[in-house]
Design a binder for these strands. Structure first.
Lengths: 107, 107
DNA sequence: TATATGCGAAACCATTTGGTTGCGTAATTT
DNA sequence: AAATTACGCAACCAAATGGTTTCGCATATA
């Protein structure tokens, strides 16, 4: 059973959960209200998100509040980062600045 | 059939293909040599990567070279970016700088 | 104490996924 | 022209996925 961050964010419902949970901790029931599926289905998603540590639990009486563990998202960022210069205009502009500096030096 | 970038990068083999294809365009056969599975399996992955436009084809006689379309990766970057400040120390340092400036202004 | 609520876990099901083998076809090479 | 090579496509299969309903347990509430 694969259980990594990439597989976790592959599902659109789980990405929506991540966004919801980012601003404030929420219970499975509260989360389920935002979707068409049952609480149990959401609980399954939360289980997956918990297993790959994208989300942390916090028990309050009989309620369990889930909140985001953004640190884990870094794994995804680290994968994409090396490709950034291939699309990011800021990076290209930096290249321009650097080449300008080089040209100036040679003059 | 879901076919978006998030689902595409969920598979570790596909992520490896992306890395290989980033530096230079490659044929399915050349790619398959890097893995244990058959060329057909790799071709299936390439099909998925092509369908979500993470990869582009370029025909050369009977060979088809696949190369990365890094632009599509921006979609993933855009999803993660809002969470960056929750883990990136550079962001925290930027916050410090900003608060320092504010403090200095008030003095 | 009895009842209602919030939750996870298990059993089950249809669909998707990732892999295989076996084609057919087009472009090379001999 | 014949054989080889590079490839995509279709059929097939076991395993994973995302969903459901049903259950049991712990915590609140009447």
């Amino acid at each position: 059973m694969r259980r990594d961050v990439f597989q976790a964010i592959a599902d659109p419902t789980r990405r929506a959960i991540i966004v919801l949970v980012a601003t404030q901790a929420m219970t499975p029931n509260a989360l389920a209200e935002h979707f068409d599926s049952t609480r149990q289905a959401i609980s399954k998603h939360l289980r997956i998100l918990t297993e790959c540590e994208l989300v942390k639990q916090e028990q309050n009486g009989r309620e369990i509040h889930y909140h985001l563990n953004a640190t884990k998202m870094k794994e995804v960022a680290d994968f994409i980062e090396p490709f950034r210069q291939m699309w990011d205009t800021r990076f290209n502009q930096l290249d321009n600045v650097l080449s300008t500096i080089k040209t100036t030096k040679n003059e």
